[in-house]
Design a protein around this nucleic acid. Structure first.
Length: 311
DNA sequence: CCGCGTCAAGTTCAT
DNA sequence: ATGAACTTGACGCGG
């Protein structure tokens, strides 16, 4: 290794992306319908429109030279609901595979983030069953694209129900019962109210899952731990095995004047510069979560580039 | 055509 | 007790 490349490796490179809604594309990325209108033919029409829109999204993300993109969970409407009995992985096997080929050709790493209704540790068996079905859908979607195991499905730990140790035991139990093809996609993320980075790390290490460190959530709800971000980040990085791909983090800033935990329009430069310090020497994929979407991701990338931290 | 009330799902917290 | 917020606005009725 030359001195130059050794120096390059040591600085820690960052790649960037954003979630779900490219504001620079004219039409909606995900169309849906009301449950009462969800006939098979309507669902097929929507799926076809959504896959076409996703195709355009991939081109757009690549054109911006970003590497990460989070796919909207609504791409297959009512995917885990009984109303959608379509064998969509079979019906759309060819277009799905083509989307995956395109993503890989463009060098994109994909991810998904199921909604708040996915609660693996609920005391209600029905809620858990619905959550497992929802996770299965997300994993099936990425599988249908043929994406490697580094394209992830990010979830939070779940609820607390007034007894966190019991809630965590239920999480462990539900996790153990997940199908392998679902579990291999999952990543645990700290949230802004219930489970701190420390707690998410404990769970991730216990369950042998990767952990996404969300710096903004950590700021809003740091939990009892006084560990500095840099230390938590290094611990999170260790939860990612080679097959899981480059460790990922989420980055966002508080919306000025709004409730704590609300994502801001863009990200605050000073905070990002702190993060550049905290992450020095680590290669990371950074999912920027901001209302300005790709504009915020591009801005962060520019700041990283100026610091010699891109790619 | 446009405005605006409503939309599958769970859980928590603020009001 | 009710509703907003959460990964994300869009659907679709009524005028």
């Amino acid at each position: 290794m030359t001195p130059a490349s050794a120096a390059t490796a040591a600085v820690g490179k960052l790649r960037f992306g954003f979630a779900c809604i490219p504001l620079g594309l004219p039409q909606p990325v995900v169309r849906t319908c009301r449950l009462e209108n969800a006939t098979p033919s309507r669902l097929r029409e929507l799926i076809e429109a959504n896959l076409a829109a996703l195709d355009a999204c991939l081109d757009y993300v690549a054109r911006l030279n970003l590497e990460l993109f989070r796919i909207n969970s609504g791409v297959i409407p009512f995917a885990s609901h009984p109303v959608n009995g379509l064998p969509w992985t079979r019906l759309y096997a060819a277009p799905l595979a083509a989307l995956g080929r395109k993503a890989r050709r463009l060098g994109l790493r994909l991810s998904m983030h199921p909604g708040q209704f996915t609660v693996l540790n609920s005391p209600s068996p029905d809620v858990v069953a619905a959550s497992v079905a929802e996770l299965k859908y997300h994993a099936d979607f990425l599988d249908a694209l043929g994406m490697a195991q580094d394209s992830k499905v990010v979830i939070h730990l779940g609820g607390v129900y007034g007894d966190k140790p019991a809630a965590l035991r239920r999480l462990d139990g539900a996790w153990a019962r997940l199908p392998r093809d679902v579990r291999r996609r999952l990543v645990l993320e700290n949230d802004e109210r219930l489970y701190s980075a420390q707690e998410a790390l404990d769970a991730a290490e216990r369950l042998d899952a990767p952990m996404v460190f969300d710096r903004f959530h950590h700021r809003v709800y740091g939990g009892p731990s006084g560990a500095p971000v840099a230390a938590l980040l290094r611990r999170a990085v260790k939860t990612w095995r080679r097959r899981d791909g480059r460790p990922k983090v989420h980055f966002s800033s508080q919306a000025a004047g709004e409730k704590a935990g609300t994502h801001g329009e863009t990200i605050v430069k000073g905070e990002f510069e702190e993060f550049l310090e905290e992450s020095r020497g680590i290669d990371l994929d950074v999912m920027v979560e901001a209302r300005a979407k790709e504009a915020a991701a591009l801005e962060a990338r520019d700041w990283a580039r100026q610091a010699g931290r891109t790619k």
